[in-house]
Amino acid sequence: MSKLPVLKNISPMIPAGSDVEKSIAFYEQQLGFRTIHQEGNPITMAVVKRDSAEIFLLRNDDQHLAEGTTFRIQVDNIEQLYQEFQAKNGQIIHPNDELQTKPWGMKEFAVIDVAGVCITFYEPDN
């Protein structure tokens, strides 16, 4: 009997702007990720990870591409994560998207990274 395929975590490849080192610093210092891989000198690609969330940061000078990129990360204990980010630097939380329960039943908030990418952290509101 064959097993059905199971999709696991998603690893987005996102534009990191022209200074990947600056993006790496943001993900490590502000969002609590750690760098698990990097390539190039200067760096052209890096992989950052926190728990099961893995993000590929790619050097890309197109500001419009970065500002048009958005993705979502599901979180357990979102209130604690929100407090962690506020304690580090409340400025990273998008002023129009602070922690709230949305009509579609998700507690969520968003941050904008140094390249302009929007990341929404969410947790089902049970």
Rank of each mutant, 00 (worst) to 15 (best):
R72H: 14
P12T: 08
M106H: 12
N126Q: 14
P95V: 06
R34P: 08
I112T: 11
H94W: 11
D125L: 02
T101A: 15
T120F: 12
M1Q: 07
G40E: 13
A25E: 08
Y122N: 04
E123G: 09
E84V: 05
H94R: 13
T70F: 12
R50Q: 12
E98R: 15
K22D: 04
N60S: 12
P5Y: 14
T70E: 11
D76C: 06
V48C: 00
A115V: 03
E79P: 00
A53T: 05
P12Q: 02
G17E: 01
D19F: 05
H37D: 12
R50L: 09
S2N: 15
G17R: 02
N96C: 01
P5S: 03
Y27Q: 04
E79V: 13
E123W: 05
K102G: 05
E98C: 14
L4P: 03
K8A: 08
F121Q: 04
Y27S: 11
L7E: 08
G90C: 06
L31C: 07
E39A: 15
Q38K: 15
E39M: 13
Q83N: 12
V47T: 06
Q29P: 09
E54I: 05
N77G: 15
K8S: 00
L31H: 01
I93R: 12
E21W: 07
I55D: 03
N96Y: 15
E67A: 09
I92P: 01
P42I: 05
I36R: 01
T35Q: 13
Q80G: 04
E108A: 14
E28I: 00
Q38H: 15
H94N: 13
E39C: 09
V117W: 00
T44N: 10
I78S: 05
I55K: 01
T120Y: 02
A66Q: 07
G90L: 11
A110R: 08
S2A: 14
L4C: 10
Q83G: 13
P12H: 03
L58G: 06
A25L: 11
I112Y: 07
Q91A: 09
G105D: 14
A87L: 06
E21I: 04
P103H: 14
D61H: 05
E67Y: 10
A87I: 04
D97I: 06
T70D: 15
R50V: 11
S11F: 05
M45A: 06
M106Q: 15
P95S: 08
L7W: 06
Y82L: 03
S11Q: 07
Q74L: 13
N96D: 03
T101K: 15
R72T: 09
T70K: 10
T120I: 13
P12F: 04
I78N: 09
I93H: 03
Q74M: 10
E98Q: 14
H37I: 01
V117H: 08
D19T: 01
